[in-house]
Structure formats: C-alpha cells, structure tokens
C-alpha cells in the first residue's frame, strides 16, 4: 500500500475549512474557478461547493477551438452535479487575434498564452462577482513546474497545492467526482490526443512515489536508490524541481533599502484577518 494514501474525511475537512475560512475572513462570500473538464478543477469545485454553498461558486468553462469537446461536457457535468452556476467564455477570438500577429508561434507559446488568457478571464470575474479565484494546481504539477507561470498557476487560494496527483484521485473518488472524470487520462488539452503522462515521460503514480520520499521524507539519493528508484529518474526529477523553482516564487526584488518586501518586510497575507 502506498504511503500516499490519505484519510479522505480528515483531508476534506481541512480543505473545505480552508476555502471557507480564507474567503470569509477577507469579507467575501464567493469563489470563481475555471472548470477544464479535468479532475483537478473538478475536485476544487466539489471542495468549494461544500465550503461556500453551491450558490456561491461560479465556474467558467474556457475552451479554445482545438479543445476536446469531451472536456466541455465533463466540465458541464461537474457544474450540473454540484448545481453551481457555470458559463462558457470561449478564448479562441482573443488568442487567435494575438497569434495573427505572430503566426510562427510555437505550441509552447500558444499553450502558455491560452493559460494566461484564461487567467485574465477568471481575475476579471473576480472583480465582477466579487469572488476569489481558486487555484487548481496540485503538488505534483507545482513541484515539476508543469504549469504556466501567471497562467493556470495564478490564483488567490489553492486548496489542492499540497496534495499529490495520486491523492487528488483518491480524494476525488471519495468526494463523488464523476468516475468518467476520475478515470480518464490527465491532459492539458492543448492539442488532440495529448496526455500529461505521455508528455512528461513517466506516470503520475511513479513520480508521486518519488516526490513524496524526496520532498516530504527528505530521503537522500542513496536511500531513494534503495527504495528502487533509478538514479537517472531521481536526477531527472530533481532537476525539474530545481529548474522550475522560479515558478513557485514571487519575482525577486533588487535590494537597496533596509526593509525590502518579503526579505526583511515580512507579514502573513492574513495580516489583520
């Protein structure tokens, strides 16, 4: 049995409480999130609906013309099951208008632009509703840097950023996320047939077992090898974590004064809350 298995009732209680309290304490009632049709955003929607009541959760589905139509139908299924309000904002016109200026742009640039376009839609609705934007990046993606900085990695609150993909699966099943969403292959849905695991070159289950031992248990490389992880795999993942660290930090500031934000000017974000 994997050590990644969790007590779902307890985990759910902590994450639901987190969303409720962190939103209420800043004087807000609502949350807005992008529903991709994938498991991560579905789970966050389930957590938010329980935390705030379905009437206080607003989902936005933001397809691009090349998105798999199944993604939208899965997103709608989540919204219907939870009875949360849901709207579709297609990002094709905005993204295409931009790339008309840069027709040679690579798939990477296009994918990043789509993720950032979605972010601007969510933050615009944050001001409109008003509502806080919920993040849907899990710990595996955050550690690997498998996300777009200022795109899908941007949010006000992230309830699932400290749980691995394997744990997202377990909790999603326990909370009743539809099985067709739990069981389908994870995909960023940037082009037809894309899957995360194909692109990454390893499975989430494999990498979660390694990351848990490397990050949470702080095992040395020698210990990891004893646990059956190939040295090349350990090195590859270590490098991914290291090289994506900039994505997990605020921009660095050139220090000249005696009190520089986040270096020697340090306050919790919940300051006064």
């Amino acid at each position: 049995m994997s050590e990644l298995r969790v007590n779902c009732l307890l985990l759910q209680k902590i994450l639901v409480g987190f969303v409720r309290e962190e939103i209420h304490k800043v004087g807000m009632k609502k949350a807005v999130l992008g529903l991709s049709g994938g498991i991560d955003s579905a789970l966050v929607a389930y957590i938010a609906a329980q935390a705030l009541g379905p009437e206080n959760v607003h989902a936005i589905i933001m397809p691009y013309k090349s998105s798999n139509p199944e993604s939208e139908s899965h997103a709608r299924l989540v919204a219907e099951r939870l009875r949360i309000s849901c709207q579709v904002v297609e990002i094709t016109p905005m993204v295409d208008a931009y790339f008309d200026l840069f027709p040679q742009a690579s798939p990477l640039r296009r994918g990043n632009k789509m993720a950032r376009e979605r972010m601007t839609v969510l933050f615009d609705h944050s001001a409109l509703l008003p509502a806080l934007v919920l993040g849907t990046s899990n710990k595996t993606e955050l550690l690997l840097g498998y996300g777009t900085l200022h795109g899908d990695m941007a949010s006000a609150l992230n309830p699932i950023g400290d749980i691995y993909k394997s744990q997202v699966w377990q909790l999603s099943e326990a909370m009743g996320v539809p099985m067709e969403i739990v069981e389908k292959k994870p995909s960023a849905d940037l082009w037809a047939g894309q899957t995360d695991e194909q692109e990454l070159g390893f499975t989430y289950r494999e990498v979660d077992e390694l990351l848990y031992r490397m990050v949470d248990l702080r095992m040395s490389r020698a210990e990891l090898a004893i646990h059956g992880f190939a040295p090349e795999f350990i090195q590859e993942i270590y490098a991914k974590v290291q090289n994506s660290h900039f994505k997990r930090r605020l921009p660095i500031i050139a220090k000249v004064s005696n009190r520089t934000i986040d270096r020697d000017f340090r306050y919790s974000r919940d300051w006064g809350k």
């Binding site: 050590e3 969790v6 007590n7 307890l10 985990l11 902590i14 749980i163």
Partner: peptide, 11 residues
C-alpha cells in the same frame, strides 16, 4: 499547526 496527513485517524 496541523500537518502530516496519512491514512491514520488523525493528523
């Protein structure tokens, strides 16, 4: 602070 989620009944 609560930390250390696992399969156990408590943190």
């Amino acid at each position: 602070p609560g930390r250390g989620i696992s399969e156990a009944d408590t943190l």
